[in-house]
Amino acid sequence: MRVLVAVKRVVDYNVKVRVKADGTGVDLANVKMSMNPFDEIACEEAVRLKEAGVATEVVAVSCGVTACQETLRSAMALGADRGILVESEAELQPLAVAKLLQAVVNKEAPQLVLLGKQAIDDDSNQVGQMLASLMGWPQATFASKVVIAGDKASVTREIDGGLETLELKLPAVVTSDLRLNEPRYAALPSIMKAKKKPLAVIKPSDLGVDVSPRLSTLKVAEPPKRSAGVRVPDVKQLVDKLRNEAKVLP
């Protein structure tokens, strides 16, 4: 069984992004970029499926600028067998990415597509669901456990009230939540081997996909800042302030 993993290059989660003064976006110049943490989890899960003998091949796909090759190399260093970059300088919105992935899925015919539940840059939480929809496949979002048995996947999902377990008919789309696994550190030999694994670069036009954006960003602003309040010396004064100053307690 082939597993496809989608990986996105995003601002590293440790970076505190700053909104550009002209309000056109956030300042990404010379900012550290990494693989989206949820995608890393998805990739780790795919590799574990391979190590467990369930998957036979793990293919990592990224859509975006040339530098996404680094992200694909990271995925291959984690254990993906090969990479596909759908290269585009244009802004790719979730719908466009889902269509690109659909085209790749049609070519590669995986039984399972693993993605992160959301990317930590635009926080959209859409691509996996959109891809499943376009393919007419079942989906399990926010997965915290994935078990494959025959042509079925049993997936435990983190939902608002707790957990639920779904049984999906393969092929299917699964998006990872944080607790699905803890990704490994890539080993040095794997990083070096990753360099030699095949990485194909294709263009959206090769796939016949129109990637024009549907949403235009009019402005990006800094959220209202919360400023630090006061330190209270003890519990008595805290309760007094909550009652009489903030009036949030009766």
Binding site: E70, R73, S74, L188, I191, M192, K195
Partner: peptide
């Protein structure tokens, strides 16, 4: 590129 990836990890 290789050294970059090594340094990152």
């Amino acid at each position: 590129e290789m050294v970059d990836a090594i340094l990152d990890e």
